[in-house]
């Protein structure tokens, strides 16, 4: 399978700040790749370089085999969803999308089709009058209008309500399944990425810490989590934090998930009952499973930082 995006040893600085520092990345055709990392990790700079919006200081960027800075023609095959998009504000929603149809040379009927696909019915409203959520839906419709082979999305769901977010994820999966559309998605919302992505690149301080198919990453980093179902998850978490081999804890209303130092998972089975006795909690169950994407992310970051 060929790579639609190839980034090799990318460097980009803004003044003295190194936004991207030797980043390399490949997105294979037909994959849904997630780009995760903290704020300032270099995700947006990488995406901008891939889109040809900025010129790298050094390194190579190839999208569909071409340098995106010099070959705007490749954008016929790319759909873009920015975190915060601005469109010519005084156009009406449907009119502007019809214009976009003419830009790409697709039938104008496609405008209505994509608006229905994203559940946006404010056809006659001016773009400046759309709410943040509506604008994001409009942007998604805008990105889909020419049936692109590759969709690059920077925080595509940040302004959507939970229902619209679920619909977007379903839409991504549908496009991937039906049209083999390739996605590169940057997002902070890790559960949403874990639902759709089949591969992942974890970025920190301008370089890729780990990348590859998600299953491989979980295996490579032995990212397992122990799940304790209990009636006092918060109190349990406080006690677990004191254990030296516990790396990360997350709680919900029904229990605690723990990522331990590699190979230390069995220790939980000894320590959990002691904690339960100490805080007078009831343990409903303890099971070893796969860590969440968030837990994998923190594990990779810790390991790479040598902690």
């Amino acid at each position: 399978m060929s790579s639609l995006i190839v980034v090799e040893n990318l460097h980009k600085s803004y003044g003295k700040v190194k936004a991207v520092n030797g980043l390399s990345l490949q997105v294979r055709e037909g994959s849904i790749m997630g780009l995760i990392g903290p704020n300032g990790a270099g995700k947006t700079t990488t995406i901008k370089a891939v889109l040809g919006l900025l010129k790298p200081d050094s390194g190579k960027v190839a999208v569909l085999g071409e340098d995106p800075w010099d070959n705007p023609k490749i954008r016929e095959n790319i759909g873009v969803i920015y975190e915060k998009a601005y469109f010519p504000a005084h156009h009406r929603v449907l009119d502007y999308l019809k214009r976009v149809c003419r830009i790409y040379g697709v039938p104008e009927a496609r405008a209505l089709e994509v608006l229905r696909l994203v559940d946006l019915d404010a056809y006659d409203r001016e773009i400046r009058g759309l709410s943040a959520g509506m604008l994001q839906k409009f942007e998604i419709a805008h990105a889909l209008i020419h049936n692109p082979r590759l969709i690059i999305a920077d925080e595509p769901a940040s302004n959507l309500d939970p229902e619209a977010r679920t619909k977007l994820l379903d839409l991504i999966l549908r496009l991937h399944r039906e049209a083999n559309t390739t996605f590169l998605i940057s997002s902070h919302i890790l559960p949403e990425l874990s639902r759709v992505c089949d591969s992942m690149a974890i970025i920190s301080e301008g370089r890729v810490l780990a990348s590859g198919p998600i299953n491989e990453l979980f295996e490579r980093y032995s990212a397992k989590a122990v799940r304790i179902s209990t009636d006092k998850p918060e109190a349990f978490a406080q006690e677990l934090k004191k254990l030296p081999y516990v790396e990360r804890i997350s709680t919900d209303s029904r229990g605690v998930s723990i990522v331990t130092t590699e190979g230390m998972e069995p220790n939980i089975y000894e320590d959990a009952p002691k904690i339960a006795r100490k805080i007078a909690a009831v343990i409903m169950g303890i099971e070893l499973g796969t860590a969440s994407l968030e837990q994998l992310y923190y594990k990779v970051v810790r390991e790479k930082a040598g902690r």
């Binding site: 919006l53 954008r75 920015y82 998009a85």
Partner: peptide
Amino acid sequence: TIQTLLAYP
């Protein structure tokens, strides 16, 4: 808005 325009071919 220029970002949007630069997304076109």
